[in-house]
Design a protein around this nucleic acid. Structure first.
Lengths: 338, 338
DNA sequence: TTGTACGCGTTATCAC
DNA sequence: GTGATAACGCGTACAA
């Protein structure tokens, strides 16, 4: 059936279509909602024809006002500059699509104020569900900002609560496991490189896991706004020197891929990449680092699967009116050391 | 003023608030829309109090149905895995925010079908404007998919039309300029590395610009789904050997940063990074490559500024009912060789 | 300064 | 099978 929609600016309403088809608006509504069981072939054909000619599309806003649902799911990412965020969105998006739901992405831009704005908008609109990788790390605080009754899944953050379903990674144990692996290889000193650790559950968990093995691990904290500052590199090099003087082997543990990328040139220029007394590991989701350091052991999360898992639970809850099952309120998608 | 919203599931409507405040719903409406000029201090205070107690928020859907606008702008990105896309969104988003508009991000995931789905949703909802980095490269085709009357700005694609305002980069001339720069340094052969060139205006323009200087440039075309395939690297190494045998210097011209990153390890392991007869250049928006190759000359676009520029024009058009000015329908944000 | 009443475009419950 | 018509929650003349 060719779509002959004319080119005028006019947007047709259900009423106008009804008039043109010589039926009532109720019948049009039935037609566009696929309730053909009680409708003559002739009227159906007639209506199809008119809709085709006019290029009529339903006004989703009016429909939402009437039905109180939208088939729309809001996905709030901490920062779309991170591969984790975009990939987790893509996972969620693809599963939601299979369930006749549409994912809409909001970027908090690593900014709590922005996250609040996003949540405010989401509360005002008719979203059937929410998947969020929150910046706010206090469950009581976050609770304030999410409209009651909005079906919500938390991703990548452990808020220590039963109120929401959470899809997380085994940050603590994989960090511990990785640290132990290198400890066994006689690496006696560990330098953790991360953005501000306190206040973000993922980084706190990772750091804690490492410290069960390296209680005295040092920390180089990166200021997000100036990741490439020379100061940091000097600190790292100085630590290496100190360890070398003491005949100790040094492990660099990057809590985020981007930070390793920032340090990589320095390591390269100082010929540290294949030094036997230096090891580098990192949380690294993309393939880039593994290509740069083919012999390295890296921690790989599965953000796509995390998003997909969150979406599956949410879709089920939306379409089948499932209520959260307390016993399975936290799903852990394990990261792998490889 | 403390927000004492109670914790019940109930969502208050304007009518209920009106009743509680002992005024009509019209007065509440005036209050929430800031029309305080004609309202007694007392009623205003009373209303503020009730709104505070009830935690009332306006139903954006109902408002949209009534006003036909939403203060929402849809931003459609080609693929949020690309730094360009996310950065252009962040630019647009920040400017829109300053204009009391909210940017909502749709990801086409490098998939034309997905782009169509996104546009369909956008057509159904009440968006005040659209900023799109389209996958569809035919203006007539794209025209079909965008609702008449939707204020639209095209980013990063030259659709060769006056119908829309377009914000683009000087892909052609910067490529030419860069090629010329290396030509002058006695690089006699150029190898272009890109995803499929035909069908995407940006890549076509870049390739054409290069070919004005290197008419015989070879092309290594990367299959997006298998960027790391060994085949490509072998091809590159073979070309180098051939050129070396003929005492020719070779320029590698990557049309996308990610591709250079994919090849980088190979170049590194074959000691090609500082070989005098090999040069590497690329369209490279992030700081990573420049750090990896501090002495290289790279092309840097400004996606943030492109998004911001698009948003500025759109915001002006939405808020001031400006109509497009034909004479300035294409804005070029130049990339720089640095 | 405030209230009444209608419209926005759909859906859904009755009737017929 | 189909048609009136009352919601849905808000904005806005027009009155008062």
């Amino acid at each position: 059936m060719v779509n002959n929609r004319n080119n005028s600016e006019h947007v047709f309403t259900i009423k106008e279509v009804a008039q043109l088809a010589g039926v009532s608006s109720a019948t049009i509504s039935r037609f566009i909602n696929g309730k053909m069981n009680r409708m003559s072939k002739e009227t159906a054909a007639k209506i199809a024809d008119i809709i085709d000619q006019t290029g009529f599309v339903v006004n989703a806003t009016a429909r939402q006002l009437s039905t109180h649902n939208s088939q729309l799911v809001a996905v709030v990412a901490a920062d779309i500059d991170d591969y984790f965020s975009t990939e987790f969105f893509k996972g969620a998006s693809s599963v939601l699509e299979q369930n006749q739901l549409t994912a809409i992405l909001f970027d908090s831009n690593s900014d709590k104020k922005r996250e609040l704005t996003n949540l405010k908008i989401i509360n005002h609109q008719v979203f059937d569900g929410l998947i969020i990788q929150p910046l706010i790390n206090e469950q009581s605080e976050l609770r304030q900002e999410i409209r009651q009754g909005l079906k919500t899944i938390i991703v990548d953050r452990d808020l220590h609560t039963q109120d929401w379903t959470m899809v997380t990674t085994n940050n603590y144990s994989i960090s511990q496991q990785t640290a132990a692996y290198f400890r066994q290889q006689q690496f006696d000193d560990c330098i953790v490189i991360s953005e501000a650790v306190t206040g973000t559950s993922t980084r706190e968990d990772r750091s804690a896991g490492i410290r069960t093995v390296f209680p005295n691990a040092s920390l180089i904290e990166i200021d997000n706004s100036r990741p490439f500052i020379k100061e940091n590199e000097k600190k790292a090099l100085a630590m290496i020197e100190k360890n070398r003087a003491a005949k100790r082997k040094t492990l660099f543990f990057f809590l985020k891929e981007r930070l390793l990328l920032a340090f990589f040139p320095t390591f390269m220029h100082h010929d540290l990449l294949s030094a036997p007394d230096i090891a580098i590991t990192a949380f690294s989701d993309t393939a880039i680092v593994k290509r740069l350091l083919p012999d390295s052991k890296l921690i790989k999360q599965d953000p796509f699967l995390m998003g997909a898992t969150a979406a599956e639970i949410l879709a089920d809850r939306i379409n089948n009116q499932q209520t959260p099952n307390i016993s399975s309120n936290q799903i852990v998608i394990p990261a792998k050391l490889q």
